[in-house]
């Protein structure tokens, strides 16, 4: 069997903490950090491993800080 898994990499330093990605995620993968980046913004972080790589968050991110990965992996 194989299943699709996804992952996102967020450029913390470029994130402005607008939270638009949070609403776009169908699996509540994203939330805001407690810490701030060097510009003083709370940034988007992943809070679970449910990402399917649907790209919704990345597409809607005004600053284009999210890179999305998706792969088919074998399961036992």
């Amino acid at each position: 069997m194989a299943k699709i898994i996804g992952d996102i990499a967020i450029n913390n330093e470029r994130c402005k903490g607008c939270e638009v990605c949070i609403a776009a995620c169908p699996f509540t993968v994203i939330a805001m950090s407690k810490e701030v980046n060097s510009k003083g913004y709370h940034f988007a972080i992943k809070v679970n491993g449910e990402c399917t790589g649907c790209t919704n968050c990345a597409i809607v991110c005004p600053d284009g800080v999210i890179t999305v990965y998706r792969a088919k992996v074998a399961t036992v």
């Binding site: 898994i5 996804g6 992952d7 990499a9 790589g53 790209t55 990345a58 597409i59 999210i66 890179t67 999305v68 990965y69 998706r70 792969a71 992996v73």
Partner: peptide
């Protein structure tokens, strides 16, 4: 899975 060939959006 963070490999260039798996990037679906950047």
């Amino acid at each position: 899975i963070r490999k260039p060939e798996n990037i679906v959006y950047k």
